[in-house]
Amino acid sequence: MLIIPCPYCGPRPELEFSYGGQAHVTRPTAASNPSPAEWNAFQYERANLKGLHAERWRHIHGCARFFNVVRDTTTDEILRSYRSGEK
């Protein structure tokens, strides 16, 4: 079981979290009139990295916040976590 450092609550067991996919995927606004390629990239294109991966988690059974984690997908080592909107 992963021990995930929630940026609000501190390290907590994986059972309290839900996974939210790759982090830092920018959602184009409707007003920006995104091209089909831009919209397609937002909707479907993901990196599927081997190695360091920035991903979203939600402390759904804790403080309920979404946040970001940098995890090594080969070792499950978590290098850091930070709040949504931070880099």
Partner: peptide
């Protein structure tokens, strides 16, 4: 105090 899980219940 915290929200957490007890078996399969929040």
């Amino acid at each position: 105090c915290t929200r957490t899980v007890y078996a399969k219940a929040e």
